[in-house]
Simulated assay, not measured.
Amino acid sequence: MGAFVALLRAVNVGGTGKLPMTELEAMCEELGFGAVRTYIASGNVVFTSRKSEAAIKAALEKRLHAYAGAPVGVLVRSATEVAEILAHNPFPKMAPNRTVAIFLDKAPPADTLAGIRGQKAEEIKLGRREIYVHYGEGMGTSKLAILAAKTSTARNMNTIATLAKMAAEL
């Protein structure tokens, strides 16, 4: 039985994709996941499962589509991977609330950095299946656009640290 973290894309952000976390917990339990816990209302859930990452993703996306009536993107990482993402943060001395990991389904394309638009004070580094960004002046005023991140979801380092801890406790 492995411990996993699932990150939902565009849930309860900016008035879109309303999904109570109690509903998300219930869906995960219906899918047979164990020790289900959510964290904040932006679509973060930790749980245990015997299924593979791909099977978890497919099952959650299917169930969420039935609930929402539209596709909901899901990115899944093992507890070990979440801990590694935190450990490999290339901006460890920067404010964790201004540093994010953008989660992708696969490795960032080779031309990811060339496809960036609107970069000012942001620093960007590529990870294994993540793009790390430090927003020097904050995310609220940033005009940064990363084409490779169109179907991704981002979490700041504070959230990742909490999710890593929660998953490690399962």
Rank of each mutant, 00 (worst) to 15 (best):
M157H: 03
K106E: 15
V46D: 07
L104R: 02
A79Y: 06
I131E: 11
E169P: 03
E29W: 01
M21N: 13
G136Q: 11
G69S: 10
L64V: 02
A83C: 05
S152Q: 10
T48E: 15
K150V: 06
I146H: 10
A55E: 15
H88K: 13
L104K: 08
K57W: 03
K62N: 09
L104F: 07
E25Y: 04
A87P: 01
A66P: 01
T162K: 09
M27L: 15
V72S: 00
F103G: 01
Y39L: 12
I131M: 12
N156E: 10
L113M: 11
L104Q: 07
L8Y: 05
I102M: 03
R129M: 04
I131D: 05
R50G: 14
A55T: 09
R155D: 05
Q119I: 02
G15I: 10
A35T: 12
T159Y: 03
M157P: 01
E123T: 01
V72A: 02
T153M: 02
R77Y: 07
M139P: 03
A154G: 15
G136N: 12
R98N: 15
P71N: 08
K51Y: 05
K106V: 09
N44F: 12
T162F: 00
E61R: 07
I56D: 05
L86R: 01
T141A: 13
R50N: 13
R77T: 09
G2N: 14
L104C: 08
K93Q: 15
A10R: 08
F103L: 14
V72H: 02
M157Q: 01
A110D: 11
M27I: 15
N156M: 08
A167K: 05
T112V: 02
K51F: 06
H134C: 07
N158Y: 05
V36P: 13
R117D: 14
T22N: 14
Y39W: 14
T153D: 05
L19W: 09
P90F: 01
N158I: 09
V13T: 03
H134M: 04
E29A: 14
P92H: 00
I160W: 00
N156S: 11
E30S: 15
A87L: 03
K57C: 09
Y132P: 08
G43C: 06
T48Y: 09
G43Y: 06
A167T: 06
K143P: 06
M1D: 11
T112E: 09
A70H: 15
T151S: 13
F33D: 12
T151K: 07
R77Q: 11
K18T: 06
A145R: 10
T151L: 14
G118A: 08
T16V: 00
G32P: 09
I160A: 00
Y67T: 04
G127Q: 02
A154Q: 12
V13L: 09
V72D: 00
L86N: 01
G14H: 00
T80Y: 06
